[in-house]
Simulated assay, not measured.
Amino acid sequence: MDLSFKKPSKNVRKAMCQASLDLGDREIETNHKRNAEDSLKELTRHEHARIVNSGNSAIMIAMSNIKGPVLLPDQGGWTGFKKIAEFLGLKIAYLPTNHGIIDLEILDDHIKLTNPQSLFITSFAGYMAEQPVKEIFELCDRRNVILVEDASGAIGDPQKSLACGDHAHIILASTGSPKIINLGNGGFISTNDPELFNYSNYLLKSFRTSPVMCAGMVEAIKNAPNSLSKILKACNFLKKKINPVLFEGYRGINITLPSENPKQMGRELRKRIPVEGGGIISTCPRYDRINQPAVCLEIKNLEIKCLKKDNLREISDITNKIISNYII
Rank of each mutant, 00 (worst) to 15 (best):
Lys6Thr: 06
Lys7Val: 13
Lys10Thr: 08
Asn11Ala: 11
Gln18Asp: 08
Leu21Ile: 00
Asp22Leu: 05
Gly24Gln: 05
Arg34Asn: 06
Ser39Glu: 04
Thr44His: 04
Glu47Gly: 07
Val52Asp: 04
Ile61Gly: 12
Ile61Trp: 15
Pro73Phe: 12
Thr79Glu: 09
Gly80Tyr: 07
Gly80Glu: 02
Ile84Arg: 07
Ile84Met: 07
Leu88Thr: 02
Gly89Arg: 12
Lys91Asn: 12
Ile92Phe: 00
His99Asn: 14
Gly100Glu: 11
Ile102Pro: 10
Leu107His: 03
Ile111Ser: 12
Asn115Ala: 14
Ala129Ser: 05
Val133Ser: 03
Val133Met: 10
Arg142Phe: 04
Asn144Ala: 04
Val145Gln: 12
Glu149Ala: 05
Ala151Ile: 14
Ser152Phe: 01
Leu162Gln: 08
Leu162His: 09
Ala168Cys: 01
Ser177Gln: 14
Asn185Glu: 15
Tyr202Ile: 08
Tyr202Ala: 10
Ser206Glu: 15
Met213Gly: 03
Pro225Val: 05
Asn243Lys: 12
Glu248Asp: 15
Glu248Phe: 15
Tyr250Cys: 09
Pro258Asp: 06
Pro258Met: 11
Asn261His: 10
Pro262Ile: 09
Met265Leu: 08
Arg267Glu: 09
Arg272Ile: 00
Gly277Gln: 01
Ser282Cys: 02
Asp288Cys: 10
Pro293Gln: 11
Val295His: 10
Cys296Ile: 10
Leu297Val: 14
Leu297Trp: 15
Glu303Arg: 03
Ile304Lys: 05
Lys309Cys: 04
Asn320Pro: 12
Ile328Val: 09
